[in-house]
Amino acid sequence: MAVPDDVLTRSKIDAELATLPLWRYAGELRTELKCPTSAAALALFAAIGELAQQANHHPDVDWRYDTLIIATSSHDAGGQVTARDIALARRISAAAQEAGAVAAHG
Rank of each mutant, 00 (worst) to 15 (best):
P4E: 12
D6K: 01
T9Q: 10
T9F: 01
R10E: 14
S11T: 11
K12W: 10
I13C: 07
D14C: 07
E16H: 02
L17I: 04
A18Y: 02
A18H: 06
A18V: 02
T19D: 15
P21Q: 05
P21V: 00
L22T: 04
W23T: 05
A26C: 06
G27I: 05
G27Y: 09
E28S: 11
E28Q: 09
E28P: 01
R30W: 13
T31W: 02
L33I: 09
L33D: 14
K34N: 14
A40T: 09
A40V: 11
A40S: 14
A41D: 09
L42F: 10
A43K: 05
L44Q: 10
L44M: 13
F45I: 02
A46R: 02
A46E: 15
A47W: 07
I48P: 11
I48F: 11
G49C: 08
G49P: 08
G49W: 00
G49V: 03
E50A: 14
E50K: 04
E50P: 02
A52R: 01
A52P: 04
Q54S: 12
A55K: 01
W63C: 08
W63E: 12
R64L: 06
L68S: 10
L68P: 09
L68T: 05
A71G: 14
T72K: 01
S73W: 04
S73H: 13
S74N: 14
H75Y: 12
D76Y: 01
G78H: 05
G79P: 01
Q80L: 06
R84P: 08
A87N: 07
L88R: 06
L88S: 09
L88C: 07
R90Y: 04
S93V: 05
A94H: 02
Q97H: 03
Q97V: 00
Q97F: 00
